[in-house]
Design a protein around this nucleic acid. Structure first.
Lengths: 329, 329
DNA sequence: GTGAAAGCGCTAACAC
DNA sequence: GTGTTAGCGCTTTCAC
């Protein structure tokens, strides 16, 4: 139950003014006698003094806080992304306030406001909506906003993303090589998230040129995925399931594996693997692996650069993904 | 570039005093004319006013912030744990400041101080050390601390944990049934983390009564796990690898699967699966699945109860784990 | 080399 | 029903 000790207590003990203590705390030793400095250091450690962040922030307008909003923290993609971001921001002396939008645009709006209320100095957002108008209000604050993983329309903020098109297209030759005649894209609803649509469009673009059927299966909480996959198994054409993110990939694999369906004999499987787990699953899944943690690093660095240089022009950073060839095609 | 609008601006516009605005903000409408109330509401929305959290916290000593420190945010266990904690705290009007100790006790100490500096109202900690003396200093703050996942010695704080002993012991019959003669526990270093030791001891206790060999393999960054597993494969006795957490389990499985080693024919595998992924891997892994997100829920609820009732006595909440029988034994 | 004083944006006695 | 006032713990001119 110690009473909170403040800068005044330190000043009193050290027999100097609060000003001098404040200077000491902020490294302004410019014209401070070594003796004073030593005395202050001593008192601070004696009293176990720590400056109150809120008071500092209130006065100095510096919070050293960065807000990070992920769309769903239980999605393991977040783990690696946050790790990557944290490594960089931490090293630069910032602290992250991590928040979970839980896939809700309303909640996300609320969280954005809360971050601003906390006087964060910057915001990193994995948006839960593609609609830029939702995020326009942040422009009127002086807080830099950086998007990661998912873009918005129009793209009014800087953005760090996986190279979705290129990665998808690099997958084509392997699908052709195995003579697949039908590709079923399994995705969460395209309309909500731009990245989903980009991935789908990329697949579509590459498939249409060839003489291959393309289906889109949009999975919602109402979807009976088990049944849909059974339908796919019944197709006369040689079919491959293309999961458009790690979560879908795992759901598809769970159904195939627990259903004892042989991959790739009965059906091929590929897709985006956010977690780099697909080596372990089934026969080993040929997949597009994102460098999630590295994306986080880049995101952190980009944000720092915007913090540094307010007039820096907005750019899009594209991080390449890697095709991992295994045995599911 | 809007100038920050403050309570004074609102007061001026609404032609009342700051006090009245403050009362409005804090829901003290007790004796406020409906007319004033409406006018204030109007002005606040006109000006798009939002109170400054730092100032509120500075004055009122309420930050509505809860600090959460995980030992390694890239460990996917964190994802589910944070989700669970967040659901509960959020609903109660608190915000989490999530921090990553990155498996470093020094960093963890630093983060604890930083959380206190931020005036968090409570701290949830997945400790990176078992040594209670590292955490004693928090007792002198008035901030409740709750441990999760890993205990410390002595247990001077309340604690939420998986039922490690019971879960481990429930696994015994299945190991016996398959006539394993040697159990190799694969764990990160026992000395650092109490939970690791408890898991090992539980296995030891249950194995020693039977006539079965028990080995312990402590894995550090220096360990050549591949080679160690080859050694295990060469044992004349029928052997099972018992991974003591999700990370170890995945590392072991990666080696076995990429090495084309047949599970369970050549070697049995089981262990703790933090991520509930083991259904998908190899032949399906018989494992101990933690209810990680639920542990998070319980953790959040416990913290709230300590926030509520400062004199509440410290308790240990044990959440049962589940044995999942599959085909790796 | 150091200090006095004002004030960041808010809350909470206490007054009327 | 509402306002006056005095801070919360800190930073920062400006002065000596």
């Amino acid at each position: 139950m110690k009473k909170n000790i403040t800068i005044s207590d330190v000043a009193k003990q050290a027999e100097v003014s609060k000003t001098t203590i404040s200077r000491y705390l902020n490294g302004q030793f410019g014209s401070m006698s070594a003796e004073t400095k030593a005395r202050i250091a001593q008192v601070i450690s004696d009293l176990n003094y720590r400056p109150n962040r809120q008071a500092q922030a209130l006065k100095s307008k510096r919070s050293y806080l960065i807000g990070v909003i992920v769309s769903d923290i239980s999605n393991m993609y977040s783990s690696l992304l946050l790790k990557g971001i944290g490594e960089v921001l931490e090293a630069a002396g910032y602290q992250m306030i991590i928040m979970d939008a839980a896939n809700s645009v309303e909640k996300e709006q609320d969280l954005l406001h809360k971050l601003i209320d906390q006087s964060v100095e910057g915001i990193i957002l994995q948006p839960s909506s593609r609609d830029a108008s939702r995020y326009e209000f942040i422009q009127s604050e002086k807080i830099p906003l950086l998007l990661v993983d998912r873009g918005i329309e129009p793209l009014i903020y800087p953005f760090v993303t996986t190279d979705n098109e290129a990665a998808t297209k690099k997958m084509l030759p392997y699908i052709l090589e195995k003579k697949y005649q039908r590709v079923v894209v399994i995705s969460e609803p395209l309309a909500d998230i731009l990245t989903r649509e980009i991935r789908y469009q990329s697949i579509k673009d590459m498939i249409e040129a060839e003489n291959i059927h393309l289906d889109l299966l949009e999975v919602t909480s109402e979807t009976d995925l088990q049944m849909e996959i059974n339908t796919c198994l019944a197709y006369p054409e040689k079919t491959v399931l293309f999961a458009s993110n790690g979560k879908m990939l795992m759901e598809v694999l769970t159904i195939l594996i627990t259903g004892n369906i042989s991959i790739p004999d009965e059906i091929g499987v590929t897709g985006f693997d956010d977690w780099n787990l697909s080596a372990l699953v089934g026969p080993g899944i040929t997949s597009i692996e994102q460098q999630t943690q590295y994306i986080g690093n880049v995101t952190g660095e980009q944000l720092l650069s915007y913090l540094d240089d307010e007039s820096k022009e907005q750019e899009v950073k594209v991080v390449p993904a890697k095709i991992q060839l295994r045995d599911s095609l």
